[in-house]
Amino acid sequence: MKSRDFTKTGPVAMVAHACVLVVVVCLLGAAVSHAATDEADSPLTVYVAVGVLDVDEISSADQRFTINYFAQFRWVDSRLAHDGPGTIRRDITDITAPRFLILNQQKVWSSLLNVVDITPEGEAVFRQRLWGDFSQPLRLHDFPFDKHTFELPMVSFGGLEQQVIMAPDPQRSSLIADNLSVADWRILGYQTEVREIPLTNDVSVQGFVFSFEAERIFTHYVVKYIIPLFLIVMMSWVVFWIDPTEAGSQLSVAVTATLTLIAYHIALAGKLPDIPYLTRMDLFLFCSTLLVFVALVEVVLTSRLARSDRVELARQYDFYSRMVFPAAYLAAAAWALL
């Protein structure tokens, strides 16, 4: 068989060969473009792991908590693959990468650079270390016997045109430290979840949420506020053992108890924010103040009876008050605190 010399083919054949080459090049370009489009359209999964290293403070009055935390975001993007030989480091603003935001962060300080470590296979790892304040709305109806869930809602924004899906990292578990700085709260547990996070009434985004549950240690409030309140109210009952003819002594005790309760109201005002409802402590304070005020009214009434020569009737009022007031106060305390 003789080999064919393509250089001696006619012009028609040469044009045909050129057309075939053009078609092949176009098909290859379309395939590459289609693959790139598919990659851009497919969701990017970002694996997240969070570690709360310390909880410095939980402020009920300011509706916030202060923590020291570490987070790792890991994803694979073939567009970031390189020739190696090892991991390279790039600023996150210099590459095509998702950006991450904690929605409730207030004042925070970062101790790590905004850099991404990239392996030759295109696996990217971004690490974040923050210390600062995070807002948290609290329902304080049960104060000081309350417990709350504190959240770190994380979302991805900007940096990529494709959708970003955040998920717990199967290679690294989230955690919270055992020894924490916060003294008046007890950590009960923590969890991670992926859910829709509402931004407005009509708009929500998919995000990653790390949350921990904490319970207030109420011993401080019992010793420093509740027990002294019991003693102050019991002090106001001393007037029932003072003879109604000694109106000056009765009034002195009753007024002293009232003024002491006012001072307690002022002391507790800084522990809570301005909220449109009453807490358990508010109800207990209200019941205490009301009974002390009623005791003051009873003193005025018995003193007036004594001056009207009805001393025996005034003494009967005092006698029954010795039983009625303690019973009413115990019932009110149980209703408010239990």
Rank of each mutant, 00 (worst) to 15 (best):
M166S: 04
N201E: 15
E123M: 12
V205T: 11
F157E: 13
H148S: 05
V115N: 14
S211V: 04
Q162V: 01
E193T: 06
A124S: 11
D202S: 12
R139L: 12
V164C: 04
T119L: 01
D142E: 15
I176T: 12
F157R: 12
G159Y: 03
S174Q: 04
P198Y: 13
P144M: 11
V116R: 00
G189E: 05
V194C: 11
M154A: 08
Q191C: 01
G189Y: 06
F134H: 13
S174L: 01
H148Q: 15
F126A: 02
S204N: 09
R139C: 02
F134N: 03
E123L: 08
R129C: 05
F208G: 00
D178Y: 02
A124T: 05
Q206A: 08
T149G: 11
F143K: 02
Q171N: 14
L130S: 11
P153F: 08
S156I: 04
P120M: 09
D169W: 11
D169E: 12
L160A: 02
F126D: 01
V182G: 11
Q162H: 14
D146A: 12
R195K: 15
F210H: 05
D178N: 15
A177H: 05
I165C: 02
I118F: 13
R127Q: 15
E193G: 06
F126K: 09
D133Y: 13
F126E: 04
Q171H: 13
E123W: 00
T149S: 14
V209K: 06
F150Q: 08
K147P: 00
V115K: 10
S204Q: 13
D202R: 13
T192E: 15
I187K: 08
D133V: 07
Q136G: 05
Y190T: 09
F126P: 00
V194I: 11
V155E: 09
F157A: 09
V125L: 13
S211E: 15
E193L: 11
M166K: 03
G207K: 10
R129T: 09
F212V: 10
P144E: 12
K147M: 13
P170E: 07
N201H: 04
K147G: 12
R195M: 08
Y190D: 13
F145G: 02
